[in-house]
Design a protein around this nucleic acid. Structure first.
Lengths: 251, 251
DNA sequence: CGCAGCGTTGATTAGTTTCAAAAGGAGTGG
DNA sequence: CCACTCCTTTTGAAACTAATCAACGCTGCG
């Protein structure tokens, strides 16, 4: 986690580690995060309600299924996974969250978190108390709109995952995930072709509805086809076009 | 569609068919629909922005993937399915919508509908123009809150479907769908044990990530186990407890 | 150094899809 | 009202994908 991490995540981590009292105005991610929709005056008001606490360590929970819902969260650095535990004790990963992305919105419906969220590596988080966000939304149409859009986006993402699980083969699912991570990296101005997977093979399997063994075999197959180079968690996409073809998604 | 329909859907349809200008105040569904969260003064204001047009005929579209997003919709009577068409032309059903339920929220994120919605039988719809809803939400905290909750609920529903597709067998998936329909019927004060499926086997398969043949086989198996009686689209749940056990979901 | 956790690979098995065919229902027109 | 067609549903047999079971390699840590 030390040497490798510094290769692909250093840009995201450094500014945050020595700047706990960062604010939305100077945050490197403000062009892709909540402030995206706001004028600078309004950003200041948003900033006032946001709470920043010390970073989460690897494997620490941000919240657990069943916890009372009070806030949504923005990832400042690091990666989290959201997951539900099924009645027979198995785990369903419902999403991975990278810097600039918002999680916790599934808790609004019942005032109770519907899933758990756990840090896959050290992660800095911005906490946004929901009642404050509601009040601010009522005053700032752009913020209200943007938050509706964020939730709607979560719905369309989930629907894409539904389609993936329902219609696509193991190869297609893994390829699609690699492409999704690549795209999200690009959004953060990181390399779309070289990155370190923050999650384990088990997590990938639990997200894509596959077993670890199958995930591993798919990676081997992809290497044999020279679509990508896999060195444990380090990924290099060699043939983006070929990978898109394997994913069979048209994007 | 004529004789059978009158058995299970007559209560839902009659009041609507001869009352196009129904309003939220007198709607039979107001205790489970959008007005749920509102005082009667506020219901009147909501009512003023809602548009009711003539019912959709079977197979008519309410909106199509790619259409400009302008409104969300409440089902007054009948049933709709929402679906996406994959790049290779196959269909992924993302949800079925019964009276009192809201659809179209996946269009907010891009100002474009991310899925299509089609009537599975004659359906009366309330259209809620989104910009009006936004304005009203900013004035009525309860409405804003409720709409956030509705979207959040859609997210948790999608996550349940994700888990179902990822972790559960064909038997479990079909059982879970039957129980879901049963529960939603109960919410509308209809029989939880006897109902008519508004969707085809193909639709069920496309929703649950199974082929028609598999769906049909599961129904046969369920009949053999005397969990339910199937007569084409007419379903009678004979053993709710056994069905819950087969669904393996703890609910 | 030895152990624990994670990842890879191989052989076998099981569940679902695919292919094929036929039965059942609904609608149409004579 | 019946014959015809089209579409949906059901059932059977074969093929295939991914899961399961099992073993081993690699890495990091006490």
């Amino acid at each position: 986690m030390t040497i490798h991490l510094s290769q692909s995540e250093s840009q995201a981590q450094k500014p945050c580690n020595h700047d706990y009292q960062a604010n939305c105005g100077n945050c490197r991610l403000n062009s892709i995060c909540l402030p995206l929709a706001l004028e600078s005056d309004d950003v200041q008001q948003l900033d006032d309600i946001i709470q920043r606490s010390k970073p989460l360590q690897k494997n620490q929970h941000l919240y657990r299924e069943g916890d009372e819902f009070q806030s949504v969260f923005a990832v400042r650095s690091g990666t989290l996974k959201a997951y539900k535990t099924t009645d027979d004790g198995r785990e369903q990963v419902t999403g991975f969250y990278f810097p600039g992305e918002i999680l916790g919105m599934d808790g609004i419906s019942n005032n109770t978190h519907a899933s758990s969220a756990k840090a896959l590596e050290t992660a800095a988080i911005c906490e946004i108390p929901f009642t404050s966000l509601e009040k601010l939304s009522a005053l700032m149409p752009n913020l209200q709109r943007h938050f509706f859009q964020l939730m709607s986006h979560e719905i369309t993402e989930d629907q894409q995952l539904i389609t993936l699980l329902s219609k696509n083969s193991a190869d297609e699912r893994v390829a699609a995930l690699m492409l999704s991570i690549s795209t999200r990296n690009a959004r953060r101005k990181l390399s779309p072709t070289q990155f370190r997977l923050p999650m384990s093979r088990v997590d990938i399997g639990n997200y894509l509805g596959l077993t670890v063994e199958t995930v591993s075999r798919v990676f081997s197959r992809m290497q044999k086809l020279e679509l990508l180079r896999v060195d444990n968690k380090e990924i290099e996409i060699l043939d983006p076009q070929g990978l898109r073809k394997m994913a069979n998604l048209g994007n």
